[in-house]
Amino acid sequence: MLKIKDLTVNVGTKEILKGLNLNVNAGEIHAIMGPNGAGKSTLSHVLSGKSGYEVTGGSITYNDKNLLEMPAEIRAREGVFLAFQYPVEIAGVTNVYLLKAALNAVRKHKGLSEVDAMDFLTLVKAKTKALDMDEKFLYRAVNEGFSGGEKKRNEILQMAMLEPQLCILDETDSGLDIDALRIVADGVNALRSPDRAFIMVTHYQRLLDYIKPDFVHVLADGKIVKSGGAELALELEEKGYGWLEQA
């Protein structure tokens, strides 16, 4: 589904990603771990099409198309979804409005008609409930005044509504309390399917206790320096990253 080859990315004159390789197939869950400042969010942003990053080399193909040529909104419509590490607050735009506009944009791209107003409400209320969120959140401005954990949950609500193919979760677990973590993990697990893939950026094993990854990668200094199975995360938890850099 996703093939990243020798990707190099600059921010300004600084090279952040330095030849990154990663393959993700449908149905797989990949965890990416690594020290602060390694480039994990940079990778997530580049995948989602955020401006301000200069791709200086390498390639990204998504479903056999050149992802880098697509504007951000087309990537989203084609099924790439990023749950942001720091979701922005948008004054004056309600959650329910955003969800409907986004869902209809995706549907239109797929050649489907606009969602029926009643069906939409039924759907959005069910998803809200599944994430144990109060319906009142739907009528509040997007992320405005939300707590850290509420913002993360709101990202997962959007993901659940849009049913993307490639879900990228950038530290969705950070800032969640123990109960919220379980609820969000349940939400993610409910979305698991043979034609959907996940990339989860995290610092903590505890998320991986709930969502068992097929692969764990260590991103350090702009590259994937080690890959392994779920057991690699446990090893990292025990030893930290130091032993990898020396190797």
Binding site: S51, P71, E73, A76, L98, A102, A105, H109
Partner: peptide
């Protein structure tokens, strides 16, 4: 904010 909306499929 513009990018956030784009990342959700809105042009």
């Amino acid at each position: 904010s513009i990018f956030y909306l784009q990342s959700r499929g809105i042009d």
